[in-house]
Design a protein around this nucleic acid. Structure first.
Lengths: 339, 339
DNA sequence: AACGCTAATCTAAACGTTTCGATCGTGTCA
DNA sequence: TGACACGATCGAAACGTTTAGATTAGCGTT
């Protein structure tokens, strides 16, 4: 900018005024300055600007795994929304690891991001501390955080799983395997509650041996399914509370020589792009990824626009059960119905 | 930092020296400073540091669509690699749009990213201009760019498609539909070349009506397939040069009342996580996403480490044909073989 | 005792902006 | 004609660091 000012024989203040439109500058000088900008190929240095202004027009976004199709989609929507608003987004993947997450959030705050969207991991203690003393607006995505009272957009997970499990029960299933991630994050906790609620509502016993915990990964779903299927009284249906794990479930079913839906019904959380193309077409709980991403972005953009004092807003969206053909009625039930 | 210095009764220079380890500071002062840092909860301002140092420890990454599973995986790997190296990554999705890409690259350069990894879009003119005058290292990902002579990691696309088409030919297919994205980017161009080469090598005619262009999206694959299948002399196999489009292909096949692989064989570029779980298990050309991401990251990290003068390095990796069961031998061939 | 050497510390400039307040013509009004 | 307001422009400080070079103190040599 100094060079531009010299070339146009004006002060840097005038150049700045013209560029930002913060003060009127005469047509004559405007022209000289614009010419100089073109000649020199001047680009404003956003870092210097950020230092002075105290704002970077950059936000941080952390998700556990970007390869989880739910997060892929949400990240995509969020990125687009902020792009439209002229913000850059720094993406971090925490790999479901608490320390990684802490490091990354610190990294983002060091870089003075203007705001944070966090699909958190682990317990909320450090997140809370970080959020409290850095005074950037934070919106929680997908996962609430005890003690962190801030904007959030989540799904009504309990209801969504309740609906899915109830659907399986209506098909005649009585022993329904349930594969979940570790329950220290709210969605897993709430989904489990939905499972239990549905069984109770149908007066079915809750068999703890049918509930299997994994660490969100395909291999965990595989192992859990193997255990479920090799038990002597195996379930007739399996619900996987997370998308990557259901792949493991399907592989285990295949490897053990069974087939879905003939021998065992399967449903899972999170829709994916291939759901209705390949066989079996998977019955899933679809999250409104577009809405989730947009709402999260809007909440944060609203704060960034200056609305800092409004009380925390918690948006709860509804999932939708996408019934396809990976779940079949149990024969016994079909008979009793036709009897 | 000023506050810390005052609290510890030292100069800011000493604080800086301690924090960065750039000079020895006596145990006594060290302790006072560390205490002050803790008391105040001081965090170094990375923006101010960047301004002074001329480096942000941030890189920019642009891809056309993060929801394309190839890019999802590569982005994931790249993000991890830079995270390990202490870099942040700004992610941009260009949506296959040239103007968007230009805007985003400018946005990134304004923010003084230290380097750029670009899976480009459109023609390379502006990209070239941008890359030339911003003097940040750039590595091209997946797609080369005419006139931009810089580090790159790409696939041997021609060979990969050659192998896939040859496989189909060996199965007895003679009329093989080919669905591609617009050929102004190198992978599409090279893949097409592989298609033509394979047909020529087998002395088969190249029927231009079997070649369909789309814009990388599912709907384009759908439309292209509809056209191919409603022609009077329809192909017995279809190869889709891009992953999202193959979903459209499968939907079109279903909607038109055919089935894969019984009525028509299908193969496509880019493997996906569900390939071997659902039916038909798709025969694909798998890219070594892990290697691609790591190599791209390494090339850039090497430049960032100071190796600016080395001549441009172009890494060409090999694809791998994953034969599953979405392609069947043509009956005629089976008969002639058994005859 | 004077000197030079080293280690520890400090002062101040610089990075590239924004912006407050000052300055300087110019035209208007009494 | 003098006072005054106003519009255009500028000078300089500030944002929070890093770092070159200056300063100081301590210590061993001669």
């Amino acid at each position: 900018m100094l060079h531009v000012a010299e070339a146009a024989r004006v002060s840097v203040a005038t150049v700045s005024a013209l560029i930002n439109g913060t003060a009127t500058v005469s047509p004559e000088l405007s022209q000289r300055i614009e010419q100089a900008i073109r000649d020199i190929g001047y680009k404003r240095n956003a870092i210097a600007r950020s230092l002075k202004m105290g704002t970077t027009r950059t936000i941080g976004l952390t998700v556990p795994h970007i390869t989880n199709p739910f997060f892929t989609d949400v990240v995509s929507v969020i990125q687009q929304a902020f792009d439209r608003a002229g913000y850059a987004v720094m993406l971090c993947c925490t790999d479901e690891d608490l320390n990684t997450q802490d490091d990354q959030i610190r990294l983002l705050l060091d870089r003075m991001v203007d705001g944070l969207i966090v699909a958190r991991v682990g317990d909320g203690a450090i997140l809370k501390a970080i959020v409290d003393d850095a005074n950037v607006p934070v919106v929680l995505l997908d996962r609430l955080c005890e003690g962190v009272d801030t904007d959030a957009v989540v799904l009504d997970n309990q209801r969504a799983v309740f609906d899915a499990i109830t659907y399986l029960i209506d098909l005649g299933h009585r022993r329904i395997g349930y594969i979940t991630g570790t329950s220290d994050i709210s969605p897993m906790h709430d989904r489990m509650a939905g499972y239990r609620e549905a069984l109770q509502a149908a007066n079915l016993p809750i068999a703890e041996e049918l509930i299997r915990f994994g660490n969100f990964h395909e291999i965990d779903g595989y192992n859990a399914t193997m255990q479920l299927l090799s038990a002597h009284d195996r379930p007739s249906a399996i619900f996987s509370a997370n998308n990557p794990m259901v792949i493991g479930t399907m592989k285990a079913i295949r490897d053990i020589g069974l087939s879905c839906p003939e021998d065992i019904s399967v449903a899972c959380f999170d829709d994916f792009r291939w759901s209705d193309v390949f066989q079996p077409q998977m019955t899933t709980v679809a999250q409104p990824v577009q809405a989730i991403g947009e709402q999260a972005a809007n909440l944060l953009l609203d704060r960034l626009a200056g609305n800092r004092e409004a009380p925390p807003r918690k948006l709860v969206l509804k999932g939708r059960l996408m019934i396809r053909d990976s779940c079949r009625p149990l024969r016994a039930v079909v008979q009793s119905v036709s009897a």
